[in-house]
Nucleic acid binder design. Structure first.
Length: 605
DNA sequence: GCCGTTTTCGGCCCGACTGTTTTCAGTCG
């Protein structure tokens, strides 16, 4: 299918996670998750487009992958007929899914894997490099990995390649850097899923007194390099054995009496430490970090004539144990209130804990509704009724449906479709007595800061989110003006994913954030904390700055499927890292207070 | 490969930007 590259040699297969083959124990026993099926279909889509296959076929696989990934029922439990009820899944894809659930792979996937070097799939993750040019690089230069691309760029081997000019080479160089800077780190949802699975298994091991994950994951960092799992037991051996025996362990990096390190098939490193039950609090505190926070704590201990380690808090002179069983005890003995893990970054939390003025952080339970969701009217995968049902099942008091507006033309939204949806929303609102449905939209902020539709149409929405979806490279002054003008629009209530960063793929836009925050605060425009694990936008540092400027926030999921509503926890984690209380977050408010905020916006500006 | 006020083929996500060309292909959202 592909032309042979001029430079023969073994194809590098290092570095990229791929579903286990032969199938894992889980796959054979039928416990294949929707995410795994979606990953296989996505891989097939990628390989198809890179291999120069039918673009529409690739798109069909992609669409099916998204639908499966967001499907509320485990597809492993469905038969062919039921599978074909999922939009985008027909006879052929249903067969592939069934075969995948049975054996962990299927013939079309294996055929593509054999035809396309695996590294090429990773090449197209470089911003600005798509399947077409990745294929050219492979066929003409034999490039099959990011490393080889970097070498080819550095050696000037792209210069003679038609269609690759100096600017392209420079863009690729920068793209490789962006990709590299995220190397080895995984998104928080992947790490959380792995950590919870492991904690679940280890907690069942006889002799396990306590088990939890610590590290940056417990602090709700946006990405994590590895997962730290902590267990308390007087008998570590069975715990170590249980971890090494888990089905998705790819290799054991090291294993001893106190610590075992493994790498999962997804390429994630997991460190398990087992401590005596009486050291639990000290160990949990120590392994949660951050390093900077712990350095401060140890300094405080030393000044008090004490010594703090992962084994406990000791008298500096006599080495007598003063405390070690719980974190609360340790902090109290050091004269501090217990500090919630997301705050432990040495960003003022030590002083606040000493003076007993730590914020009461917003929690997932405080959230009363989601203000940014999509349906299959635009690029979501679930129909309106399903999204509404799923939100109601979460016990929400309100839900805003905010499909894309016409200016994002790929979504083919029209005023007619929007008005028809509004009728549907009003009708459903009468059915769901306990949950108020708000009809909203996600407007597109154009390069000048203007948005879709005229005032008359905009005035008909209950709530408008407005977001940047293009022209990310505008100079700082223009981008700042653009965002401020969006804030000044009386119909814009929330700025969606304000920095537009994609973790590991795209940097935040360049703007004078201080000026933007002041505009948001002045105009009563909330800034979103987008809970998608690929965004988490605003990020914690900007949240801190915005809060200081008096900004209010909306922690939304931007759900494109019912399952995405569960991503809320990650947005809340970021809000906590930004020191936010429930009062800072408008979607913790009662419907009445929220509506008053929305109305005041129009009056203010 | 999916889908259908169209019933079995022919369309499917459209428009803009970028860098490269000299009229356009590739990429992105």
């Amino acid at each position: 299918m592909l032309g042979r590259p001029p430079r023969p040699g073994p194809v590098s297969r290092r570095g990229w996670p791929r579903p286990p083959s032969p199938p894992s124990v889980e796959a054979v026993t039928g416990a294949v998750t929707n995410d795994e099926v979606a990953a296989a279909l996505t891989e097939l889509a990628d390989l198809t487009s890179i291999g120069g296959g039918d673009a529409f076929k690739a798109r069909a696989y992609e669409k099916a992958a998204r639908a499966v990934g967001g499907h509320r029922v485990e597809v492993a439990t469905l038969d062919a007929k039921q599978l074909q009820q999922i939009p985008g899944v027909g006879k052929a894809i249903a067969e592939k899914i069934i075969e995948f659930c049975r054996s962990g792979t299927f013939p079309a996937l294996e055929k593509q894997r054999a035809a396309v070097p695996e590294g090429l799939r990773h090449l197209v993750r470089i911003p600005g490099l798509g399947p077409k040019r990745a294929l050219v690089l492979y066929q003409e230069l034999g490039v099959t990995s990011v490393d080889e691309l970097q070498a080819a760029v550095d050696a000037g081997r792209l210069d003679d390649l038609p269609g690759f000019g100096a600017k392209t080479a420079e863009n690729l160089r920068h793209g490789v850097q962006v990709l590299r800077s995220s190397a080895g780190r995984v998104h928080i949802d992947v790490a959380t899923a792995a950590a919870e699975r492991i904690v679940g298994v280890l907690s069942e091991v006889p002799g396990c007194v306590r088990c939890a994950y610590a590290g940056s994951l417990r602090r709700s960092r946006e990405t994590v390099g590895d997962v730290d799992v902590l267990a308390a037991s007087t008998n570590p051996e069975p715990l170590m054995r249980a971890l090494k025996a888990m089905p998705d362990v790819a290799d054991v990096i090291g294993s001893g009496a106190k610590k075992t390190s493994i790498r999962t098939t997804a390429g994630l490193q997991v460190d398990l430490r087992v401590v005596p039950p009486e050291s639990w609090g000290a160990a949990l505190q120590y392994f949660t970090g951050s390093k900077a926070h712990n350095v401060r704590l140890r300094t405080i201990a030393v000044h008090a004539g004490l010594k703090l380690s992962e084994y406990g808090l000791f008298d500096g002179g006599t080495d007598e144990l003063i405390g070690s069983r719980t974190e609360e005890e340790l902090y109290r003995r050091l004269g501090l209130a217990w500090v919630a893990p997301p705050l432990r970054e040495d960003r003022g939390e030590i002083e606040a804990a000493q003076e007993d003025r730590l914020p009461v952080l917003v929690t997932e339970g405080d959230i009363r509704g989601d203000l940014h969701t999509h349906t299959d009217l635009t690029d979501g995968v679930a129909p309106l009724e399903e999204m509404v049902r799923a939100a109601a099942a979460r016990g929400y008091a309100y839900l805003a449906v905010t499909d894309h507006a016409p200016n994002l033309s790929m979504q083919r939204m029209t005023t007619e479709k929007m008005l028809a949806q509004r009728e549907q929303v009003r009708r459903l609102d009468r059915v769901h007595r306990r949950m108020r449905l708000l009809h909203g939209t996600e407007l597109n902020i154009d390069p000048d800061g203007a948005v879709d539709w005229d005032e008359e149409v905009l005035a008909g929405f209950d709530l408008c989110v407005a977001s940047v979806h293009s022209h990310f490279d505008q100079p700082r002054a223009a981008m700042t003006r653009r965002l401020i003008r969006a804030c000044e629009n009386p119909y814009v209530h929330v700025i969606g994913h304000p920095s537009t960063r994609m973790l590991g793929r795209r940097d935040a836009v360049d703007a004078d954030w201080e000026a933007v925050f002041q505009a948001a605060a002045r105009t009563g425009t909330a800034l979103e904390i987008n809970s998608s694990p690929e965004r988490l936008d605003l990020g914690d540092a900007l949240v801190l700055a915005a809060r200081a400027a008096g900004v209010k926030f909306a922690v939304n999921t931007d759900a494109h499927a019912t399952a995405h509503l569960d991503n809320l926890r990650y947005g809340v984690g970021t809000a906590q890292r930004g020191w936010l209380t429930a009062d800072d977050v408008i979607n913790t408010w009662t419907l009445r207070r929220l509506q008053s905020f929305l109305r005041r916006k129009s009056a203010n500006t």
